[in-house]
Design a binder for these strands. Structure first.
Lengths: 225, 225
DNA sequence: ATTTTGTGTAAACAGAATGTTACCATGGAA
DNA sequence: TTCCATGGTAACATTCTGTTTACACAAAAT
């Protein structure tokens, strides 16, 4: 399965930092976006639904810790990786950062190499599961062979259909919001109509012949047996 | 749901380090085990199957990096968390550690607090499943799966119904005024009639089949078992 | 006892959200 | 080229939710 490039949002009030971090991560193949204060970080996070967010601790409007706490209260950002960036090299803020729900912590002055390798390490840790066949009850979803099996019976899905099912199947039971689905399967830059998701959901349901996708009206869809 | 204490294996050739790390993690509720060189680390890892392994980079017999590489080749240790411990504070070894497949990296001199909080953060990342689920007695309210369970029996609520219950359930026993409910669930801009809340309360009561919402006349409602 | 105030309940309605179908554009394969 | 699979849109059908209305009932106030 083709992998969409990871989206990283970087929030810092120093343009130099934004640029150097953005440049180095971009070189690694990440899609980078920036924000220059806490409020903008939250706003852009909601709009972009990034895979990882790098937050400077000391920022105008809202500190990185505040932004982290606010984002973490929302289900949408439960899985988002968060890394703190700070000039304070002391233990206290270090611990505070991690306890707030950050996944890592890098102190300034930043070595681009270190930052990149830590980011890579975080993604590696999360995506150990990548490439593995998902098995939920009698349904298995194989991203390598691009095939879905139901009780040993194999079903072929089109790319988008497969990606959609794979996303939902990756966390059975969890509800995926419509924008989440849009940004994960279609990407943030593409603009598609309102009925597009529904139509694809329908196609998947039809091809599978099993009712394993539940609609949660006003919210989204979830995979459930 | 009760959780078995996490097992942590610590490998270092300095007895002092072993003791201080073991003591501090033990105090946090982890089950700790030690090894004094690379070979012993591998041996004990196989025997204990720990959830997390802390490896000193500089150890006799085999270095931490070697141990990590060897363990990572085995399926059993694919998901095991690995943290490196080192006196070398330079970037080179740092990067090397993470690229080898470690999940984190802490440099000596070790601050026990920092180590403990990083370990906590690693585990928190692994089980973020049950993060936001409210549990009150035999009722659990899961905003990620959008499901309410009563004694393992699952109930689906409509969006507003769910939000209403979630609000009340977020502070069991506390009375929520009608305007409070209005502003939290419906928002400040929306104007709805007086009976709307009642009707929703009724629907929730009906669907749950359990009497867990108490009316406080002239005031509001509260969640109570 | 009567009125007033607050809440419970059922039914009905409007409109939002989703399901469904048919159709079009595109691009690769035969 | 033609054919076909894919992905997207538009238009309509259907379902479900949220809200209101109307009234019953209960408790408190008069």
């Amino acid at each position: 399965m083709e992998v969409r490039p990871k989206r990283i949002l970087i929030a810092d009030d120093e343009p130099d930092i934004l640029e150097i971090v953005s440049y180095n991560l971009g070189k690694e193949g990440y899609e980078t976006y920036t924000a220059k204060d806490g409020n903008e970080a939250i706003e852009r996070a909601k709009q972009l639904n990034p895979d990882l967010i790098i937050l400077d601790i000391m920022m105008p409007k809202k500190t990185g810790v505040e932004v982290c706490r606010i984002l973490r209260t929302q289900p949408l950002f439960q899985d988002t990786l968060i890394v703190f960036l700070t000039a304070l090299n002391d233990d206290a803020s270090h611990i505070k950062g991690l306890e707030t729900g950050a996944d890592d912590y890098v102190s300034k002055p930043i070595s681009p190499k270190v930052l990149v390798s830590r980011v890579n390490a975080l993604f590696r840790r999360i995506h150990k599961e990548d490439g593995k066949t998902l098995k939920i009850g009698n349904i298995s979803i194989d991203p390598v062979r691009f095939i879905v099996s139901i009780d040993e019976k194999e079903v072929m899905l089109a790319k988008k259909e497969f990606e959609l099912l794979f996303l939902l199947g990756s966390k059975p039971g969890r509800v995926f919001l419509r924008n989440e689905i849009l940004s994960q399967v279609w990407g943030t830059d593409v603009i598609v109509g309102d009925r597009t998701i529904d139509v694809h959901i329908r196609k998947v349901r039809q091809k599978l012949g099993v009712d394993c996708i539940t609609t949660v009206k006003g919210v989204g869809y979830k995979f459930e047996i």
